[in-house]
Design a protein around this nucleic acid. Sequence first.
DNA 1: GTAAATTTGTGTTTAATAACACTGTTTTGA
DNA 2: TCAAAACAGTGTTATTAAACACAAATTTAC
Lengths: 233, 233
Amino acid sequence: MIKKSTFEQIISQDMAEMWNTLTPDQKRIVTKNFTIQNFKKNQIIYAEKEAPEMLWCLLKGKVKMYKSGIGDRVQILRLYRPVQYFGYRAYFAGEPYVSSAAAFEPSTLGMLPMEVVDSLIRQNNDLAMFFIHELSRNLGGSDTKIVNLTQKHIRGRLADALLLLIENYGLEDDDSTLKIYMSREDLANLSNMTTSNAIRTLTAFTNEKLIIVDGRKIKIINEAQLRKISKFG
Amino acid sequence: MIKKSTFEQIISQDMAEMWNTLTPDQKRIVTKNFTIQNFKKNQIIYAEKEAPEMLWCLLKGKVKMYKSGIGDRVQILRLYRPVQYFGYRAYFAGEPYVSSAAAFEPSTLGMLPMEVVDSLIRQNNDLAMFFIHELSRNLGGSDTKIVNLTQKHIRGRLADALLLLIENYGLEDDDSTLKIYMSREDLANLSNMTTSNAIRTLTAFTNEKLIIVDGRKIKIINEAQLRKISKFG
DNA sequence: GTAAATTTGTGTTTAATAACACTGTTTTGA
DNA sequence: TCAAAACAGTGTTATTAAACACAAATTTAC
């Protein structure tokens, strides 16, 4: 059990964007109801069809949100980094989860019961606006993804995925190595292609000197050209 | 110009879900700022990259929201019927429109400046919850669409489109004819396929006695089988 | 009312990517 | 630490759907 002062520290430092909208009373409510849980690599946080009960807050680590489709195919929908919130959409829509979430690597998450979030939103308009803003940005992202995943060719989709990883998790101090190390299968599931095609296309990008691959470590060598490939489709 | 009493009638009768959350003062603000505009068949309501300024409210007719992609390809993202609201997402996300909207048929729309909506939301939590709910449902829909459009085969995607049209616009009194008459191209753009393939697949469904096609009029004969085709992929 | 434009329909070819099969390599867990 | 499992890599084949080409039918606009 983590002691309360640590809670307050985590909450006030990392959750600033949401925390700052709250009154002292509301802050007390959050502190009282907030719990922390650690997840192992690949551990499932919640699964499709379950009832949404918690607002999840990623404090440390990396998380994927994904959806199972036809046969054994999986589509990764969104990636989360600290400090981002997820798991609330289904609750607000009044339906079970349509996607699942799992930790990419050992991760620390905070959870707050959605009933608490709901009652806070009804008291606090800035908090309501925070969720309206987040949902709106996500919806725009999903709409754009529909077109990118259905209309671009394999090379364009993989370029998109690499650019997303740069944007989302950033690069090491060398300014070129992706901070996330993911399996070829995850990369394929992010780009709507088979694992074989992800591997082949990574090889093609390597031959074209756009990236350097060493196991799961990917160095971005020519981001400008990746952008061109992404744009062309 | 429509006179004010008519405004109030339209607003109070048709916009009930939103209207009922408002205080008398807030209702006055809406009435004062609400304007009505008619659109011809295929007329564009707003276009991608424009700045979002209005909350649109479809009072009469049918509207499509769509996004241009690679080459000349278009993806229809969502369909609207009276009385539904749209056009607010980009404003809340703080970005230009990523999609366009156009009338399928002669339509009547109400518009309310987003600044007014914004200030109402900040005063009224039920209204905030209305938008949170709408955005959440749309986001779930888009996430599901990503998987359906990328993983299902042509027949499954066209079956999905037909089922969506039933759900969204309903059937005539004969309980089988779709109330919306759309071009093969629009049907293709809804299902992520070429017009040729939409035509061919409609012919296939006709041969299998799932539908009867007469020009743009489509009768649904075997909805259960369409659901099977949709599910199988 | 008629010419032009658009839409529908169909056959053929081509390109993209999934599916399959198999080998070598790395990681994991008892 | 060693065996099993998972992952990475590559060649080959099959399948799906796009691209292209063109004719017929319908709608639109003057």
